[in-house]
Every structure is written in C-alpha cells, then in structure tokens.
Design a protein around this nucleic acid. Sequence first.
DNA 1: ATTCTGATTGCAAACGTTTGCTGAAATGCG
DNA 2: CGCATTTCAGCAAACGTTTGCAATCAGAAT
Lengths: 329, 329
Amino acid sequence: MRSIADLARIAGVSVSTVSRALTGKGTLNEKTRERVRALADAHGFRLNVAAQNLRLGRTGAIGVLLPLGHERCQHLSDPFFSAMLGHLADELAERGYDLLLSRVLPKRKDWLDDFVRSGRTDGIIVIGQSDQGATLNRTARSYRNMVVWGAHDPANAYITVGSDNVAGGQIAARHLVARGRRRLAYFGNIAAPEFAAREAGFLETLPDDIRRDVDIVPVHLTPEGSYEAAMAYFGAGNRPDGIFAASDIIAMSVIGAAAEHGIAVPRDMSLIGFDDVLVARIATPPLTTVHQDIAGGARLLVDLLCRRLAGEHVASVTLTPRLVERESS
Amino acid sequence: MRSIADLARIAGVSVSTVSRALTGKGTLNEKTRERVRALADAHGFRLNVAAQNLRLGRTGAIGVLLPLGHERCQHLSDPFFSAMLGHLADELAERGYDLLLSRVLPKRKDWLDDFVRSGRTDGIIVIGQSDQGATLNRTARSYRNMVVWGAHDPANAYITVGSDNVAGGQIAARHLVARGRRRLAYFGNIAAPEFAAREAGFLETLPDDIRRDVDIVPVHLTPEGSYEAAMAYFGAGNRPDGIFAASDIIAMSVIGAAAEHGIAVPRDMSLIGFDDVLVARIATPPLTTVHQDIAGGARLLVDLLCRRLAGEHVASVTLTPRLVERESS
DNA sequence: ATTCTGATTGCAAACGTTTGCTGAAATGCG
DNA sequence: CGCATTTCAGCAAACGTTTGCAATCAGAAT
C-alpha cells in the first residue's frame, strides 16, 4: 500500500480517479469519491508529498534562514529569534506551508544562491540581514520569492519587514532624558545595520551637551559577551546614570554586571532595553524597553511572501516601535 | 536550464552522464566529469532535490515536532526549547538533513500518524512528550524512525533521550536542605511527566518533617502564568525559605514576585531552578539551577535517529543532570 | 586481422503523482 | 426510439532524477 496505484487496484478504479478523490480536484461522482476516501482512511493511506510536489512543481515549504554573519552562537539563543520563529511557524502552518529551518554560517559568498537553486523551498524568509546585505541583493536581483526581516533601505533589491530602529533609538533617548539622566551610555553591536540604526537614532536625539559625553560600548550579542563587556566597563570606573542597551538580553547582562559593582537599577542608573521579549517582563527589575511587534512582524513577513508567490507586487513595511515603561528606569 | 536534460544537451552528453558527474556516483571519465561540473557551475545549475528525493525514496529532511499538549504558547517562547532547536539544527545540518519544524496542537488524536504518513520527512524528533504518551506509543508501534526528548519509561514503545528528572529533583532537595532551608515550596506543572518526576525526586529526598510542610504550587509554564501564580502565593502570606522551581523561567518569575513582596533572594529565601538556560546566568541574582546538557542531548537525539535510520538497534539514553551553584541560593 | 578486455557512456524504466483529452455510460428531449 | 447533451472515469504523458544493463570504443593480446 505504497502508492495511489495500490489503492486504485483495491478500489477497482483507475489511478486518476483515486487522485481526484483524494485531492478533491476535478469532477467525480460524489459516491465514488466517498468510497475511495473511506478506503484510503481504512488503509491509512496518504498521498506522497514528494511526488505531488514534483508533479506540481512546488515544494510546499518555506525556508527560514538565519544568517550568522557576525555572531556564531547568537541567534537562536536570543529570545527574539525564537519568538519570531514560533510565530512564523504558526503563520506558515496556517497557510499550509512547512517550515524549513536553516542556520547558515555565510562563509561561502553564494550560500543564498545555493539554497535557492537547490529548490528545496518555494520561498525564503531571511531573519536579520546581519552583514550580508550584498549577498541578499545579488540573489534578490534574480530571485523574487524572498522577504527579509530587518531595517528597510530603499537601495535594497529585496523587500523587508522591520521595525523603525532609528525611531526606537529616539524613543530611548527621549525616555532617558525625560528621566533626568545626563551621563549616558549605549551598549550594542555595530556590525548589523539594525543596531547601527538604533545607535544613530539614539545619538541624534540627544541634546548636544549630553551626546558629547555618551559612551559607546561595543558588545557581542551573547549573554556572556555582553556581561563581560559590562563588567569591564564598570570595572574601569565608568558610572553612567542612564544606559540604552540595544537588546533586552544585553540589558539584563548590564543589570547583573551593575549589581556586581554596587550600582542599583533604577536607583543609581536608568536602563532601557530593546525588543520586549518575554523575559524582559520577568527580569528584576522588569525592563523598560522599546517594544517590537514580533507577532505582527511574523504575520507580515508571511503575508508579503505569500502575496509575492501569488505574483502580486508588494512593498517593504516598517513597523513603529513603542515605549514600554516598567521598572528599570 | 531547468533540468538535467537541458544541461546534457548543452554538454553534448546523456542525462545519465550528467547525473553521474554531479552526484559523483557511478563510474565516469574524470575529464567528462570535470567538464560537466564546470558547465553546471557556469549556468548555475543545481539538481532538483524534490525529483532526487522522489527517485531515491527519501526526503532528506527530519521533522522536529513540538507538541503543545498542555500549554498553548509555551514551547518556543521557553529558552530551553529554542536552545534545543538551535543545536538540533546544527547537528542535522552537519549530517546533511534539512530540519522541518512543526508546532502541533494535538487536538486530533492521530496528529502524529498523519504527519508520518504524509511522508514529508525521513524521521521524526519529538521534543517533549507533553501529555501525548499514548499517541506516541501508538505511532511508535508501527513507525520506527522516531526519537523523543523526555523522561524514559521502559513501558514506552519509543526510545527517548532525556535527563534523569528524578535525580534532578533530588539534587534540588539536597541543595536546599544543605543550605539550611526547611520551609520549602515546589513550583511546577504536573501535566507533563518530566515535571512530575522532578517533583517526585524532590519530595522523596526531603526528610519527613520537611516534606510534610512542602507547598506544591501548580503553575503554567509561561512567564506570565508563573508570575501570577507566585504573586498569588506570596500574596496569601506564604513565606517559604526555599523554593525549587521546575524551570529557570519559573524561577525568574518567582524572583520578581518575591521582590514585590519584599522577599530578597537569596537572603530571605534560597531559590533553585532547572534547565540552566542561557538567561539563568544573567538573571539577578544569577540562578542556582539543575543543569541539563542540552547540546549533548541534541547530539544524542540526532545520533540515535540516524543510527535507527541505518537499521541499527538503539536504546534510550538518560542524561545525568548536575548542580550549578550561582547566587540565588 | 581477429578476439578479448576494461573503461566509458547511453538507453530506458522506474519513483508516485496530476491532468488534458477522450470515450462510455447515463440522462434529457422530441 | 433516436439523438444530443451531460457526467463520469480511464489513458497516458508529463515532472526531474537515478541506475541496471547494454552498447561502444580503444587498445592489447593472439
């Protein structure tokens, strides 16, 4: 009972009839359809998707790619990515697509072309441009079924869904200033364009006198990396009264490192993070942070991709982040 | 330039030759092989995996299933699962398999049979048995290419890789007692067998007089859920001096709720978590916790599955958890 | 020159579906 | 009852690979 032919023999009909019965396509007498279906159920028969896909010229799967350009171990360990992934899984499932997950270390310049040409998926969602803008652009010129999570840049050949990181940085700046903080620091990674934008928005919004003295602390995006960086920073005697951390994970590391140096948050120092991942809520103290709509972003990514698959013309979308005040500031 | 036939025409050879050149199988003159490969590269040609898989009777993908039996939104939001997923992605990629991710809400009793029979993957890794032991067993009787992350039970027809949760509970109990704590509480969900085992190990190790007064606090596994439960618990005037939380996320929620009630960790109360996820390290205070070897578990899951696919007979593996002392106890 | 051997390559039949076309049976109508 | 129309189901050709077998050819041995 491997194939449609076996079932056809048992049912005493042709393979085409079985196919039509099981897929519901084409015209078929309701009685035969029911009979074949019942028989299929009874024998636990399901159509072979590989053959189906071959014939239909599609795969029924969407690839979700995580380029690990700058950081080997970050991505999936970061709650932001897992949240995004979870929502993508749901959205894709709802539209009948499988989700093919692939973490990619972009050592080969044409990893993306390779993936596309292998034909394993009908479309691609790339989470984070990392430092791979050039590769993305090259592929996007010949391959249309791709959407990218990340900052929008009109120069890009690919379409993106992403938060307005500049606006997010501005929110952070305004918030810390409103809290009366004047000796500020920014903790973040600059390799990825998203983070660069957060920093830019942050800096451009600060009054000149404050901006002049802002400390820019480059960190790796892993918990350990950011913790080390914060320890070193405070260890060197720095005592800012306000910090903008480019992600909630960084923010939590900062809290820990600050505590080690006797700096209490928010008493001695206001702290604001970015992302609003679930753990931000249960950090101690709960994090004030710039909220990104991850669920909405995932829905948009899938929606745009599907419309693109359907041949529609779609444009990039930028989501507006918003402030979530909790107790770390 | 869609198919092997096109390339064959261009190269002036037969399709079989192209196939042999690109796959490296069979015997072929080294010169023709090189020539065909160069031509393929030049035209950006890649074999169509769907057709390849159809012909070879495999799919080249492994399904990773997350049954959401008891908790709708938990799984992927829990850092434990994303860490596991990340490692699985790496291990599978290393062996040339794609990773097909599927969150499943097991409302239909035979969701697993359905998945198997759809033939989309060569094997299945189920992360967490949730409350689906019966379904897993039913499928396992007729389908062998499956391994499950979770507690081992000799009665199961499927093989598992998982931590010894009873031992983990014992570790937690011994640790809290060694810290001199006597008014203890356990925060956990009892629906999943893993958590039940942690609780059992915890309780059975406590001296009688302590065990008699242990508070068992059932919680949902989401950050919000566990936070609410902890708030209610402390709000009712309970003041334990030691808590065993069945996961690190629960533990972090407990810290937050405790702080709201003026209970300082570890001064007033020792707290020990479970999992040792990355954020446990950057919680404030950093969590004492029972460490599970997630990376090793992922490697074992993939290894066992691959050997099973190769026809080998393999047995379940139980990993021994260990105590990681940090500052929450 | 004939036969043999080994190394290369081509032929064609699968793998399990879907679907345009066609023929047969059933129905409606006068 | 004869004919036109509709419904229903089967035939066979794809989809893009892989691979057992057969065919070809060059060179060597007789």
